[in-house]
């Protein structure tokens, strides 16, 4: 690629490889105003190396597809500005931590979503279509608690940030547990004890060390650590009730 004298360039290292291994490859990318990390990766794919593999969809922070490690930190790349995270003019972009790599920057999200199901992060209906729709009081404390987690976009940034997942691959992780807590607090969910049992196994919420990386890095500023603390509290109460 011919570099232009009057253009400022970013020094970008992008991880290339697959599940068997790989290494960082260097690229020089023109720097622009209001440039996001996803813009940088897309520029490389469109102008330098069409074979670069990565994942994105909405580009506006809605779909949760484009999360990657940027200078060692998990981020939603479509909403992360280069000027906020670059080390001088240097960027190092890698696939999300704690997930198997498919190719380059694309990770296999199956373990992440499998754990949502394992944590019973799915709706358990309490009514049939013949019943009246349940009236929900938005001021109700359980509803307020449920609302605090519903903006999760499944981006897996919290999962990549979690040191407990890194040390204990069976751990369900912050996103799945926060989903379980949201449903536990939803008046329309019929199987609250099933949820508590699902998060009480060997990979359950009790493995969380409350380090808080999930909450620090969540791009939507949610608080999975608080949700996990709620699950620990409710499972402990349930345990003591059963013991009586």
């Amino acid at each position: 690629m011919t570099l232009l004298e009057d253009t400022k360039y970013l020094e970008v290292e992008i991880w290339r490889g697959d599940a068997a291994g790989g290494e960082f490859q260097s690229f020089q990318v023109p720097a622009y105003e209001s440039q996001t990390i996803l813009d940088v990766v897309s520029w490389v794919q469109q102008n330098t190396d069409p074979g670069l593999t990565y994942r994105y969809a909405c580009r506006v922070g809605m779909c949760g597809s484009c999360a990657m490690m940027v200078n060692g930190t998990p981020r939603w790349t479509c909403r992360t500005h280069v000027k906020k995270v670059a080390d001088g003019d240097r960027l190092r972009v890698a696939p999300l931590r704690n997930l198997p790599i498919i190719k380059d920057l694309a990770t296999d999200m199956d373990p992440f979503f499998d754990k949502w199901v394992a944590a019973e992060g799915k709706h358990h209906p309490s009514k049939s279509r013949e019943d009246q729709i349940e009236q929900i009081d938005p001021e109700n404390s359980a509803r307020v608690e449920a609302n605090s987690g519903i903006e999760c976009i499944n981006c897996s940034v919290c999962y990549a940030a979690c040191d407990t997942v890194a040390g204990n691959p069976d751990y369900l992780g912050p996103a799945a547990l926060q989903r379980a807590w949201t449903l536990y607090n939803d008046a329309r969910d019929a199987k609250k004890q099933v949820i508590l049992d699902a998060v009480s196994g060997t990979g359950g919420c009790h493995n969380c060390h409350s380090q808080g990386s999930c909450t620090v890095h969540c791009p939507n500023e949610l608080n999975p650590m608080k949700a996990i603390a709620g699950l620990k509290r409710e499972t402990a109460i349930s345990f003591l009730r059963k013991a009586r």
Binding site: T202, G204, F239, L240
Partner: peptide, 12 residues
């Protein structure tokens, strides 16, 4: 690696 039973034993 901690299930509810071990967690409760450790906390109690």
């Amino acid at each position: 690696m901690l299930d509810l039973r071990l967690y409760m034993m450790q906390r109690l």
